[in-house]
Design a protein around this nucleic acid. Structure first.
Lengths: 236, 236
DNA sequence: GCCTGATTTTCAAGTCATCGTATGATTGGT
DNA sequence: ACCAATCATACGATGACTTGAAAATCAGGC
């Protein structure tokens, strides 16, 4: 295991350990002691301790004297921390985590669209429309179409005017990038322009409930795709 | 400013600084340098640095050589971090933050109820029912009624089976405790038992959409109360 | 004299090494 | 079975050195 470079030692170690923990590397075994971390990564105690402290702040670790440093159960992790979200994405694809991401989107995005309708200003709405137009213009180029799709959804979060929603942009970004993999496996399915257009039209009309429903329809369809792809991950 | 005790020095300083930052104490002025922190709080560099690193991990601070340590703009904060949420609550009441909390609840809780209906097991549903029964039994005792209300809502998050939703229990806890203040100012309004009962009945019937709608109704009513209390915080 | 660009200075965070302290699990004696 | 000594480990303190970026200074040309 090598520490990445380009950043400070502490942040490099933070990344390395964060990814290792999230990927389950330490699941069976015990987390290294302070001293072991220093030797394993040839870092000073300062670096090791500060990386551990940051991971503790994100809920991934807990440390007590004599008892050593432990990886916390997933229930304690700050899953909505952008770093943790990113580490989750960087590990091998899991249909479960993707479904859970999408369920969060199902909660957040319809309400974001609802609030965006009531509070979004002209510039907010223009950004949303720009996203939709870019989706149309680049329908044939997957990379740019994906970016446009992300821009569309993130613009709506922003237009909601609620900073808590805005926090989730990284999660939506991640979820959408993951989605490319799965939707392609199921069919030649790509983001539906008409469904997205319905959201924009409702927002422009000032129809908050309509925007809510239109966005909800998009996410429910995504969830259905996930269940088709792997029905075992959904109970009942 | 004094560091609280009973915990380690690092965590004490973390609390003190976190609260100060969130309360806006450093808004006009520049954040102390490493050396100043040591003298101001008579702490060692180790303690000061680790507290700063943890706050950095939560997005509240950023540090660069020569430039010193800066308080980041609110947009960068990890607002969904349980510590940050708590610090937000501990500062003087703000109607805006309370509305934003409730908007998050409006997003999360109806979908949690929807998922709980489809996936909750017997024990999950029993916990939800217990919460409702406790609300009824302690209708006359505000403290216990509040706790029962919290238990009811948190049980639904748990029953959703989605760990991301479960993360938000601290936020819902905070929001409900804040709500006591405001609802009492508006009227003698207390948590409506029938509205909560409607959610439970839908869940028990297996009516996921009904549970979604019933929960949404509860939250929309809360939002209306907020707007009545201070209409200036809502645009349009 | 004054702009421009390069060099040096300086300050604050980053990193390292080492020492001592506090804590709580384990071990061993009674 | 209980109590005390032991020991491993994180916690805390400190001094020295390194690195990086901003600010100040200087050099050269117009």
């Amino acid at each position: 295991m090598r520490t990445p470079q380009g950043v400070s030692l502490t942040y490099g170690l933070l990344e390395t350990l964060g990814q290792s923990i999230v990927s389950g590397f330490y699941d069976g075994r015990s987390f290294p002691t302070e001293a072991d971390l220093c030797t394993q990564f040839s870092a000073s105690r300062t670096v090791a301790r500060e990386a551990v402290k940051m991971l503790t702040a994100k809920g991934l670790l807990s440390a007590r004297p004599r008892q050593g440093t432990k990886v916390e159960p997933v229930a304690k992790w700050n899953l909505l921390d952008p770093d943790v979200t990113r580490w989750l994405m960087e590990r091998p694809f899991s249909n479960t985590i993707y479904r859970e991401f999408t369920e969060v989107r199902l909660a957040i995005e319809p309400v974001a669209a609802y609030l965006a309708t009531r509070r979004g200003d002209r510039a907010d709405i223009r950004r949303i429309r720009d996203g939709l137009n870019a989706m149309r213009d680049h329908a044939a180029e997957p990379d740019q179409a994906l970016q446009a799709d992300i821009d569309f959804h993130v613009s709506i979060l922003r237009a909601s005017g609620n900073p808590f929603f805005w926090q989730l942009r990284e999660l939506i970004n991640t979820a959408l990038r993951l989605s490319i993999g799965i939707t392609n496996k199921v069919s030649g399915h790509t983001a539906s322009i008409p469904a997205h257009e319905a959201v924009l039209i409702a927002i422009e009309k000032g129809d908050a409930d309509g925007a809510h429903a239109a966005m909800r329809a998009i996410l429910l369809e995504s969830l259905e795709l996930i269940e088709i792809y792997d029905p075992t991950t959904t109970a009942e």
